[in-house]
Amino acid sequence: MFEPLQYEFFVRGLVSATLVGGLCGFIGVYVVLKRMSYIGHGLAHAIFGGAVVSYVMSINFFVGASVWGFVSALLINITTRKQRIGADAAIGIVTTASFAVGIALISRFRTFTRSFDAALFGNILAVTADDLVAIVLVVILSAVIIIVGYKFFLFATFDSEVARYYGVPTGWVDTMLSLVLAATIVVSIQVLGVTMIAAAIVIPPIVARLLTNSFANMMLLSTGVGAFCGMGGIYLSYYVDVSSGATVVLFSAALFMLVLTLTGIRSRIASARGKAASRSSLMDMESGPLH
């Protein structure tokens, strides 16, 4: 258990994966409740395009990719607000187009030497001290934003239109959360990989949702589950010698299956009890949050 902790690269990877997992779980609550689950997948691809552009133009990766991701997220929000276009379609259009920019640049400049394997599938060994600093900065940014805006986020996520009637600045809320989302994905790419981020964003909130009916609890639980999966996934990666992004996702998926099974059994027991007592009102209450 403590054996891998003697390697500095492992400790750095473990800390980064835990923080990144928590971040993804935290912002995932908003993403899942807004029914935009695929925005994580899409934005990761868009940011890959941004990374290539910053590389070609020799701009700092974090700056270039964050700006690119943030602009893509804003474009998705703006497109979605035009009511006839659904969020799913907007994600499909905007993010694939930005991904295509990256691919176009790579194929145009054939001299491209940099390996993008790590970016696509995640490589925890390649996490540098700079990467870790960036992750910590994003954690602080997200914490500040959520502490200041918690009330707004709850109302705007629950019912954006009515929140607007009550004077909540819903446009700002969406912009702030897009910023956190873009920043989270930028710092997660190194650890999880473009192709694995979607699961890290979606699984923890769903696990949390199975366990609670309260928004505040879901936020806390999802962040915790995400961090736990990040940590567990890295340990798994060390012992089975598999790429870190994949192990984090597999670890989360296994946890999801476990929780799903347990809550399923619990609700069956509850409904069986309800039937036995023939108290139908009780049965409705305890048959679980997603029924």
Binding site: L33, T157, F158, F215, A216, P289
Partner: peptide
């Protein structure tokens, strides 16, 4: 289906 309680 949104996770909110009456109080929230």
């Amino acid at each position: 289906n949104f996770p909110v309680t009456v109080q929230e």
